[in-house]
């Protein structure tokens, strides 16, 4: 079998498992959409002040939940799946077969990114029909696609990196949520960061990648300014994640 066909098959099996596992499908796919509906129902009539624009909160949440969906698919779900596969000995077994490690890793990353893109598409369509979000077109579509792919790759790399720090599969949800949830809050995903937000929060948002990612994603939906520096900072985190993952990622279960 050619390596391209083998890769396609591995992605298909990853996808079968993903949809059959109620936890991965629900938390990854349903959570962002559920939050979108809940937040906009509760707060949708409010306004949020962004640099250069005022948008309704419902439109704001379309961009925020699309971003959350990417983080959820590429970081949380991928990180937990990798840790589970390692602890269950699936990775070790694969190492004893002729399947190349690169094919397995690529299949996992491509599947996570495909789920992320599907999630963004569903969120965008829902936002367009229900919440007056604009959809990216023309030049902004290119910028948006770049931000989306860079963000998805970065959070995938970070998932590989953090799996090395997770001692066992039971600890995976705790470690992953403990790292990502505070960051999502501090980056304005669930609650917009107003101009009067405390300085330390703004600093945290500026240093870590989530804020830059959501600002980059917002410009396509909300018509705010797009800065390539946001893409660059997210990409730097991706490179860092990749370097850490190369050292920290393990194939053998803990003994």
């Amino acid at each position: 079998m050619t390596s391209a066909r083998l890769l396609a098959r591995q992605i298909r099996y990853a996808n079968l498992s993903f949809w059959r596992n109620p936890t991965s499908a629900f938390f990854t796919f349903a959570f962002p959409l559920m939050f979108l509906v809940i937040f906009t129902s509760l707060l949708g009539t409010g306004k949020v002040q962004l640099p250069g624009r005022t948008v309704s909160l419902s439109t704001y949440y379309v961009a925020a939940m699309a971003t959350y969906g990417v983080v959820s698919a590429c970081f949380s779900n991928l990180g937990m799946t990798l840790t589970f596969h390692r602890d269950a000995g699936i990775l070790k077994r694969l190492r004893g077969t002729p399947l190349s490690r690169a094919t397995y890793l690529a299949s996992r990353i491509i599947h996570a990114i495909a789920v992320a893109i599907a999630l963004v598409a569903v969120t965008a369509l829902l936002g367009r029909t229900a919440y007056h979000a604009t959809l990216p077109t023309g030049a902004s579509l290119g910028q948006f696609a770049a931000m989306l792919v860079v963000g998805a790759l970065t959070f995938s790399a970070l998932a590989f990196a953090i799996s090395g720090a997770i001692p066992n599969a039971e600890a995976a949800p705790a470690v992953i949520n403990a790292t990502i949830m505070p960051l999502l809050f501090l980056s304005g995903i669930f609650i917009p960061l107003g101009t009067n937000a405390p300085a330390w929060i703004l600093w945290v948002a500026r240093v870590f990648p989530v804020r830059h990612f959501v600002v980059g994603m917002q410009s396509a939906f909300l018509g705010t300014a797009f800065h390539w520096s946001d893409v660059g900072i997210v990409a730097l985190w991706g490179v860092g994640g990749f370097l850490v993952a190369r050292r920290a990622f393990r194939w053998d279960p803990p003994r």
Binding site: Y13, S17, N21, A88, K92, R93, T97
Partner: peptide
């Protein structure tokens, strides 16, 4: 070489949802 060898380890899982 790995194609010519089969391995059953003590604790190796397979994908539970397939």
């Amino acid at each position: 070489h790995r194609a010519r060898v089969g391995i059953v380890l003590q604790s190796t899982g397979v994908e539970p949802y397939l």
